[in-house]
Computed example of a mutant assay.
Amino acid sequence: MAYQHSVSSFQTLQEDVVSGDQYRYALTNFRIAHEKVEEQRAQLEEQERQVAQLRARIALLEGNSAGIVGKSGNSVDDFSIKNAAAQLEKMINRWASDIVRNPPVSLIELCGAIMNDLASTITDTPPRYDGSSIQVQSLLRHILSETISEGIINCLVVTNSPEANDQLTRIHEHIFMRDPTIASVWRRQTYSAAVDSCSPDMTASVLVEHMPTLLKCMDGALPTTGGKSIIDAAYDFSRMIHGSHASSGDAFYRAFVPELGSTLSPRQNELVKRCMSSEIGNIDRVGATVFPGLVKVSKGPAIPGQEAEIIQTVVRRAQVICECALTGGSVPSATVLA
């Protein structure tokens, strides 16, 4: 029995021992596998370095290095824009209320000055205003909304030079028509180097261009409320929507102010007061716009042989007061206060 056990153990030992060739073959394969693993690890590290460099380059192009929360690089969705717009709307309303409570001239003179400044942006048959406090307050909000829309939001205010800003706006429009993606990167990169606030000369230039007669009635006083400049607040709002990642990527934002006397559009206008004419089925018109609306501008899919369609999506409807609520239901007339 002992002999059989020894033979069995010897046979088992022989099975566990491999030849030199087999050992060298296994060792060579192990070394090759180890070298491949090391090579793959080095490749992964190199890829990570390249990805990090690429991300840094993209961040530089998109202006993320500016580090301005909500103004460069950070994604700003439509909900955030609506909230910021609501804050700006409150400032405009407070300013208009303060002016009406302590007017620098009579309300009728203020009304006439506003209508004179808005002459190029009203319909052929504008509403008839008699200079009441509610009308003047609403018209003050309208003309400041018009000024902010055309002078700040729809013009890329990046420098304190109106001429340079106009040129940058034209460049952006040209780039956008060719490639919205490049325009988006260019816009964010440009705003990453924008001035922190509008200079007094720049602010005065915007106001003189859009509301010169009213500015004279106010002895050149700039629109402020609570010690804060409304133009600066509007500029911050403009930087937020233009210098950030739009939720739809390549789109950009534009403001719009419905004309006085234009037909109400439920898709573009939101009434801030009850409209009796609309409730009985009659067509009513815009009495005043108390805050501009916002649209998101993008390009539709390319069609061979045709230019891509420009798509405007309403993000925030313009806040308006209808004509019947503002004028007491008076019949529209071509006569306005001068």
Rank of each mutant, 00 (worst) to 15 (best):
A233K: 05
A164R: 10
G300C: 11
D21P: 05
S6I: 13
P127V: 02
T121N: 00
S80W: 07
G63D: 12
V7L: 15
S278N: 12
C155E: 14
M276S: 15
S65K: 14
S97Y: 08
T313L: 08
A288R: 04
L107R: 02
D166W: 12
S238Y: 02
K296F: 01
R31D: 15
V295G: 07
I230P: 00
F10G: 11
P258R: 05
H34L: 14
S205P: 03
Q319F: 01
G249Q: 09
F252I: 09
E62T: 01
L337E: 10
I122H: 04
S161E: 01
G261Y: 01
Y3V: 05
E146Q: 10
V18E: 11
I231M: 05
Q43K: 14
R316V: 00
L118K: 00
F291G: 09
D250Y: 04
N116L: 14
L294G: 03
V195Q: 08
P103K: 05
K228D: 15
A204T: 15
I81N: 02
R41P: 07
A113D: 11
W186N: 02
I311R: 05
E150V: 00
A164N: 08
A164Y: 00
I81V: 07
T147C: 04
N160Y: 11
T225P: 03
W95T: 07
N64H: 15
D179H: 05
I175Q: 07
N102I: 05
F291L: 11
L44N: 13
V17K: 14
D196W: 06
S106P: 07
G261P: 00
E45Y: 02
M115L: 13
I171A: 07
L60K: 13
D236R: 11
A164S: 09
S238V: 06
L156P: 07
V206N: 06
Q22W: 13
C217D: 04
K90A: 11
S199Q: 00
Y191F: 10
